[in-house]
Design a protein around this nucleic acid. Structure first.
Lengths: 227, 227
DNA sequence: AGACGTTTGTGAACCCATGCACAAAGTTGA
DNA sequence: TCAACTTTGTGCATGGGTTCACAAACGTCT
């Protein structure tokens, strides 16, 4: 029987989405030599309510000490474990244009838990180029590569029209975790996880709120001008 | 009195987050010459339930025709209006490393509603370089630039340690919508919107689910081996 | 050893979001 | 003109997530 609540219980999606932020903050605190934090302090640092933080952490198990707080190192380790970052995840990036290059050389990549093992692009001008020590290869070689040196996560950094074909190739090779930067909705079979990161969606959401603010200001002015 | 429900009512955040996807799909359909869609068809295309789509759209007003569906062009226009994309939003990017370059030349940027009016970096090696027709300038010039040619949205593409200082500069200049690509939590005064896009958070969430899948497979195997 | 102050972990209440199911409203065809 | 069919818009129930508030648990100090 597994004694680890992280394995027994289901951790809510909303909690999982916050765990990386907790982990990042704990790592920073550890670097600063902080040994222990209360839920109040950590929550303030991360920008959430302390009750939420405690409830989130309770899903992993009981790693706090009442009257004291949480041991920074221990908690960081437990969150790492829950997220599966105690092992390294091999990542492949498909599409080595501007974005692909930026992602490959992104420092956050190498820091913890992730390792780039493959870079792919079908543009002959890019094939053969070496980025962060990995050679760019044509997409057709992905399946063979995956068979020898398994890839856990595929990152799609191609233009939107190519995204579905690339996705099919990744899924066909047996990769079941995909991070999609292309502005396209991917259809995948059950059991495959896709997360999308989309710049223009985020900009549009900001535009909505910006518009709301400027409209509110406008109403304020007209209310003053003609009440 | 305003007759537009988009201005009267509050649109839920969850709905706002989906509107860009609806808009993107509608634009694609319009390009393909499709004139009308039912909620069922559009929902299938986007990957949501039709009831959710209808409820989302109902927050903007009543633009469908019962027994027929939605006029593609009209609906796209109304969503654009709701999001505030009928006008162009001037955007500035701070931090012109790999990511900044990738963002500046990202096609999705120019497509609709957004226009890059400023690129900033304090690295002397980058200042003066021209990207997509805009010259990179030192951050110190931002306030003066904003006073002459207002910036609506600031994008932070710097390393994490610089992010808060850059954010303070943006807010100080009077910019109240910020898109943050740095893995750092920004503290801002009330009235300033910050959205964060973080690669490593997304990867970690994928890792969590990948781990869950591989653990499930492991349990399955051990259940078969020792029932 | 025992009382006091602090902080966790969690039951319970609230709030928002999703999904169902159907009446209202429109179109089409006879 | 009227009946049959289609699809929207929405009231209602359900479920998750967030927040409150407090008892239980721990360290500390006398």
């Amino acid at each position: 029987m597994s004694a680890d609540p992280a394995l027994r219980r289901e951790i809510p999606d909303a909690t999982v989405a916050r765990l990386p932020e907790y982990l990042r903050t704990l790592s920073r605190l550890a670097e600063d030599g902080v040994l222990s934090v209360s839920s109040e302090e950590l929550a303030a640092e991360v920008g959430v309510r302390s009750a939420q933080l405690r409830k989130d952490l309770s899903h992993l198990g009981s790693y706090g000490v009442r009257g004291v707080g949480y041991d920074v190192e221990t908690l960081a380790l437990e969150i790492s474990r829950a997220l599966g970052l105690t092992e390294d995840w091999p990542v492949a990036i498909v599409g080595m244009g501007n974005l692909g290059h930026a992602l490959a050389s992104y420092s956050g990549f190498v820091t913890k838990g992730f390792r780039i093992v493959g870079l792919y692009d079908d543009d002959p001008a890019l094939v053969g180029e070496r980025v962060v020590g990995v050679v760019i290869r044509p997409l057709a070689e992905l399946t063979a590569h995956h068979a020898v040196d398994p890839i856990a996560i595929g990152v799609i950094a191609t233009p939107a029209p190519a995204a579905q074909a690339v996705c099919d190739a990744l899924v066909g090779a047996g990769i079941s975790s995909i991070l999609n930067f292309a502005p396209a909705v991917l259809s995948v079979p059950d059991g495959v996880d896709v997360r999308r990161v989309d710049l223009s969606t985020e900009l549009q959401i900001l535009a909505f709120h910006a518009q709301r603010k400027s409209l509110a200001a406008g109403h304020l002015r007209s209310a003053v001008a003609a009440p």
